[in-house]
């Protein structure tokens, strides 16, 4: 079966419908036993120190993952992706660009999807049928998300892991669905977590390996993973194009703000962790979040290379959780 690399969430319906296996290169990189090796390979081959760790990790992953093609998000993610696919081209990895139109133009987005259909030799309707099959699994992921903040029986890391996997469904949706089913059954039998502080995690998924469990040692649990949730398309529409129009991540920051605001109040969040990747353009959005989400304390955490949290970041997180805990106690008394 044809393995197709992806650089971030794209309409994977087209790959699955063509009998292919989507492979999210980010997941290959970060879930590797030694992700640092992939990043080092990229630097050894000359990629600059001042380029985002995810891009360098994807470079290593693309060469290690044995993929025939890469669908690269050339608009709606970061411009480093364009240079990445050009460099990979020299290594014999072919790629197809996929552009999310910044203005959410319906016809343009549909045209991009039609290109995918033509590339994989399938009809548009085949992808639509696949969407309905994938939605069955996505609904279960929404259930996991609900159990994270309503029943409080799912940890922040579990929420992250299952939701982030929605981009490629581990390349095998049947096996992924079984895994999700088993987890749902296990979590349903749990007692609610006792953590006092409820956090939102906004921004791209973390390159740190232990941020969620560390937060839990500080009495705080993530009850909202912003971008990971978006990967599951929690929107009420059966229109495949509309689905990818409502998906917030590739477009403007203000639609992300509206989505975050709604979830913060629904989920009773006490504090926000805004994760930013070193050398990433999304760092600039910190200005917007600090202004628009001003009612809730926000801690910006920056990560560079894969591995555990560094001592400085741990100190900051600890100070932040301590402050939120004391605010809560004060408000309660």
């Amino acid at each position: 079966m044809k393995r197709v690399g992806i650089t971030t969430t794209i309409p994977a319906e087209f790959i699955f419908a063509a009998g292919g296996v989507p492979v999210d290169l980010n997941n290959i990189f970060i879930a590797d036993a030694a992700p640092m090796g992939m990043l080092e390979r990229a630097e050894r081959d000359g990629l600059p120190r001042s380029v985002c760790g995810w891009i360098k990790g994807m470079y290593g992953a693309a060469l290690a993952a044995n993929v025939e093609h890469i669908i690269a998000v050339s608009d709606g993610d970061c411009s480093h992706t364009r240079s990445l696919i050009e460099i990979l081209e020299m290594e014999g990895v072919k790629s197809l660009p996929f552009a999310y139109p910044y203005d959410r133009d319906y016809a343009l987005l549909k045209r991009q999807m039609e290109k995918l259909a033509a590339f994989f030799g399938i009809a548009f309707a085949d992808a639509e049928a696949m969407m309905r099959r994938m939605d069955r699994i996505r609904k279960k992921l929404h259930r996991i998300d609900g159990m994270t903040w309503r029943e409080n029986t799912v940890s922040g890391f579990e929420n992250h892991l299952y939701l982030v996997s929605a981009s490629d469904m581990d390349g095998d949706m049947n096996r992924f669905e079984q895994k999700v089913d088993a987890f749902l059954a296990e979590a349903a039998a749990r007692e609610p977590f006792p953590h006092e502080i409820r956090l939102a995690y906004i921004g791209v998924p973390p390159i740190f390996t232990d941020i969620y469990p560390f937060l839990e040692t500080r009495g705080a649990r993530v009850v909202f993973n912003e971008v990971q949730r978006q990967f599951t398309f929690p929107f009420d529409t059966d229109d495949l194009v509309e689905r990818y129009r409502r998906y917030t991540y590739p477009y403007d920051v203000f639609s992300r703000v509206r989505d975050i605001e709604a979830e913060l109040s629904r989920r009773g969040v006490n504090g926000i962790i805004h994760y930013v990747q070193s050398f990433c353009h999304h760092q600039m959005e910190d200005v917007v979040f600090r202004k628009h989400l001003a009612g809730i304390p926000l801690l910006t955490v920056e990560g560079d290379a894969p591995g555990p949290l560094d001592a400085r970041t741990r100190l900051r997180i600890e100070g932040f959780c301590e402050m939120l805990g004391s605010k809560r106690r004060k408000a309660a008394s």
């Binding site: 001592a311 400085r312 100190l315 600890e318 100070g319 301590e322 402050m323």
Partner: peptide, 19 residues
């Protein structure tokens, strides 16, 4: 302060630097 995650001072309670 730093280092206390690796090596804790004997008999010491710990607070964050911010506090």
């Amino acid at each position: 302060g730093y280092g206390r995650y690796n090596v804790r001072i004997e008999g010491s309670a710990v607070i964050s630097e911010i506090k």
